[in-house]
Amino acid sequence: LQLFIKTLTGKTFTVEMEPSDTIENLKAKIQDKEGIPPDQQRLIFAGKQLEDGRTLSDYNIQKESTLHLVL
């Protein structure tokens, strides 16, 4: 599923993930694309901070959802 990642600077980029992927996987993918170390990434969806060990489906993140990346 394609997700939109929006940064505080207003930049938006996309990543391609599976619902079974963990937040950790997502942070690694963001590191590949943007060079931001996972330990500096905080991801927010629907007002909640996402925890590394959980999956996208745990948070009911669907295709074309927008996640906010806070550094």
Rank of each mutant, 00 (worst) to 15 (best):
residue 52 D to M: 06
residue 20 S to I: 07
residue 25 N to S: 13
residue 33 K to L: 12
residue 33 K to T: 09
residue 26 L to A: 02
residue 65 S to E: 10
residue 69 L to A: 02
residue 13 F to G: 01
residue 25 N to W: 12
residue 24 E to F: 15
residue 38 P to D: 04
residue 34 E to L: 10
residue 70 V to F: 12
residue 33 K to H: 12
residue 44 I to R: 06
residue 54 R to M: 11
residue 19 P to S: 12
residue 41 Q to C: 04
residue 67 L to W: 02
residue 27 K to G: 01
residue 68 H to S: 06
residue 18 E to G: 11
residue 25 N to A: 07
residue 61 I to Y: 02
residue 53 G to S: 11
residue 69 L to K: 00
residue 64 E to S: 15
residue 24 E to P: 03
residue 11 K to R: 07
residue 1 L to E: 04
residue 63 K to F: 11
residue 46 A to R: 11
residue 13 F to M: 06
residue 34 E to I: 11
residue 21 D to F: 04
residue 21 D to Q: 13
residue 3 L to I: 15
residue 2 Q to C: 05
residue 32 D to Q: 14
residue 61 I to Q: 02
residue 48 K to F: 09
residue 49 Q to W: 07
residue 1 L to G: 06
residue 35 G to C: 03
residue 3 L to P: 01
residue 71 L to K: 11
residue 43 L to R: 00
residue 35 G to Q: 06
residue 27 K to A: 01
residue 9 T to H: 11
residue 67 L to S: 02
residue 45 F to E: 01
residue 29 K to D: 03
residue 32 D to G: 07
residue 33 K to S: 14
residue 52 D to F: 04
residue 4 F to A: 06
residue 19 P to R: 09
residue 45 F to I: 04
residue 36 I to L: 09
residue 29 K to S: 10
residue 38 P to W: 15
residue 67 L to N: 02
residue 56 L to D: 00
residue 28 A to G: 15
residue 13 F to D: 01
residue 40 Q to F: 11
residue 12 T to L: 12
residue 30 I to D: 00
residue 40 Q to G: 06
residue 53 G to W: 09
residue 39 D to V: 07
residue 20 S to K: 07
residue 40 Q to I: 10
residue 35 G to K: 10
residue 15 V to H: 02
residue 1 L to F: 07
residue 46 A to Y: 08
residue 19 P to G: 07
residue 6 K to I: 12
residue 9 T to V: 15
residue 41 Q to S: 04
residue 24 E to K: 07
residue 17 M to G: 13
residue 37 P to I: 05
residue 19 P to N: 12
residue 41 Q to W: 04
residue 1 L to H: 11
residue 59 Y to I: 03
residue 62 Q to T: 15
residue 61 I to H: 02
residue 36 I to P: 05
residue 13 F to T: 03
residue 51 E to K: 06
residue 5 I to S: 00
residue 12 T to V: 10
residue 1 L to S: 05
residue 18 E to W: 11
residue 53 G to C: 04
residue 30 I to V: 06
residue 68 H to W: 06
residue 11 K to C: 05
residue 46 A to V: 10
residue 67 L to F: 04
residue 36 I to C: 03
residue 13 F to P: 00
residue 8 L to A: 11
residue 71 L to I: 12
residue 68 H to C: 05
residue 64 E to F: 13
residue 31 Q to G: 14
residue 51 E to F: 07
residue 30 I to N: 00
residue 57 S to K: 13
residue 36 I to T: 12
residue 22 T to F: 07
residue 66 T to C: 04
residue 8 L to N: 10
residue 11 K to D: 09
residue 13 F to R: 01
residue 12 T to D: 09
residue 38 P to T: 15
residue 24 E to R: 08
residue 10 G to S: 06
residue 3 L to C: 02
residue 12 T to C: 05
residue 71 L to Q: 09
residue 66 T to V: 15
residue 58 D to I: 03
residue 50 L to S: 01
residue 15 V to F: 12
residue 28 A to C: 04
residue 67 L to K: 01
residue 56 L to N: 01
residue 32 D to V: 10
residue 2 Q to F: 11
residue 54 R to I: 06
residue 31 Q to P: 01
residue 26 L to W: 00
residue 58 D to G: 04
residue 53 G to K: 13
residue 48 K to A: 14
residue 47 G to I: 02
residue 67 L to T: 02
residue 10 G to P: 02
residue 21 D to A: 10
residue 35 G to V: 02
residue 28 A to W: 15
residue 57 S to C: 03
residue 71 L to H: 08
residue 55 T to L: 06
residue 20 S to V: 08
residue 69 L to Y: 02
residue 66 T to K: 05
residue 63 K to S: 15
residue 54 R to A: 07
residue 21 D to N: 08
residue 26 L to E: 00
residue 68 H to F: 08
residue 52 D to L: 06
residue 62 Q to L: 06
residue 25 N to G: 12
residue 29 K to F: 11
residue 33 K to E: 15
residue 3 L to S: 00
residue 62 Q to H: 09
residue 16 E to R: 15
residue 32 D to C: 05
residue 55 T to R: 14
residue 63 K to L: 07
residue 29 K to A: 13
residue 55 T to I: 14
residue 60 N to D: 13
residue 55 T to M: 13
residue 12 T to N: 11
residue 36 I to H: 11
residue 67 L to P: 03
residue 32 D to N: 07
residue 6 K to W: 11
residue 58 D to E: 07
residue 66 T to N: 05
residue 28 A to K: 12
residue 17 M to K: 01
residue 53 G to I: 07
residue 44 I to C: 05
residue 59 Y to D: 01
residue 60 N to K: 13
residue 15 V to Y: 04
residue 45 F to M: 06
residue 23 I to S: 02
residue 17 M to P: 02
residue 57 S to T: 12
residue 14 T to P: 12
residue 70 V to Y: 13
residue 24 E to G: 12
residue 58 D to M: 05
residue 8 L to W: 14
residue 11 K to T: 09
residue 11 K to M: 10
residue 48 K to Q: 12
residue 41 Q to K: 01
residue 4 F to H: 11
residue 38 P to F: 11
residue 57 S to D: 08
residue 60 N to W: 05
residue 28 A to S: 15
residue 44 I to G: 03
residue 7 T to F: 13
residue 34 E to Q: 11
residue 10 G to D: 06
residue 14 T to Y: 12
residue 39 D to Y: 07
residue 40 Q to E: 10
residue 59 Y to K: 01
residue 31 Q to H: 14
residue 58 D to A: 05
residue 69 L to H: 01
residue 38 P to H: 11
residue 13 F to I: 07
residue 62 Q to Y: 14
residue 57 S to I: 07
residue 16 E to S: 07
residue 3 L to V: 10
residue 48 K to P: 01
residue 70 V to K: 14
residue 7 T to E: 06
residue 40 Q to D: 12
residue 17 M to D: 01
residue 8 L to E: 12
residue 43 L to K: 00
residue 56 L to V: 10
residue 42 R to A: 06
residue 14 T to M: 11
residue 9 T to P: 06
residue 41 Q to A: 05
residue 23 I to P: 02
residue 61 I to N: 02
residue 34 E to R: 14
residue 43 L to D: 00
residue 8 L to R: 11
residue 26 L to N: 00
residue 57 S to A: 12
residue 68 H to I: 14
residue 5 I to R: 00
residue 65 S to L: 04
residue 21 D to P: 01
residue 22 T to H: 06
residue 27 K to E: 01
residue 9 T to Y: 11
residue 37 P to C: 04
residue 46 A to H: 15
residue 21 D to L: 05
residue 18 E to N: 08
residue 3 L to H: 01
residue 66 T to W: 14
residue 26 L to S: 00
residue 6 K to A: 15
residue 45 F to D: 01
residue 10 G to F: 05
residue 67 L to D: 01
residue 40 Q to K: 14
residue 46 A to F: 11
residue 16 E to W: 12
residue 59 Y to G: 01
residue 22 T to R: 06
residue 42 R to S: 11
residue 71 L to C: 04
residue 48 K to R: 13
residue 15 V to D: 00
residue 65 S to Q: 07
residue 69 L to D: 00
residue 61 I to G: 02
residue 28 A to M: 15
residue 3 L to N: 00
residue 56 L to E: 00
residue 34 E to D: 04
residue 18 E to I: 13
residue 56 L to K: 00
residue 17 M to Y: 14
residue 49 Q to R: 13
residue 5 I to Y: 01
residue 35 G to Y: 04
residue 65 S to K: 04
residue 56 L to T: 01
residue 14 T to C: 04
residue 53 G to Y: 15
residue 5 I to F: 03
residue 22 T to W: 06
residue 7 T to W: 08
residue 61 I to A: 02
residue 23 I to E: 00
residue 44 I to Y: 13
residue 26 L to V: 07
residue 69 L to I: 06
residue 18 E to H: 09
residue 25 N to C: 05
residue 49 Q to P: 11
residue 5 I to D: 00
residue 42 R to H: 13
residue 36 I to Y: 11
residue 26 L to Q: 00
residue 51 E to R: 06
residue 23 I to D: 00
residue 48 K to C: 04
residue 39 D to W: 11
residue 35 G to T: 03
residue 39 D to I: 12
residue 66 T to H: 12
residue 55 T to N: 06
residue 26 L to M: 05
residue 50 L to E: 00
residue 38 P to G: 07
residue 2 Q to K: 14
residue 25 N to P: 01
residue 31 Q to Y: 11
residue 11 K to L: 15
residue 32 D to L: 09
residue 5 I to A: 00
residue 68 H to G: 05
residue 24 E to T: 12
residue 49 Q to L: 12
residue 32 D to Y: 13
residue 20 S to L: 13
residue 27 K to S: 01
residue 3 L to T: 01
residue 64 E to A: 13
residue 62 Q to S: 14
residue 60 N to A: 10
residue 45 F to V: 03
residue 6 K to H: 09
residue 54 R to E: 04
residue 69 L to G: 01
residue 36 I to F: 14
residue 17 M to C: 04
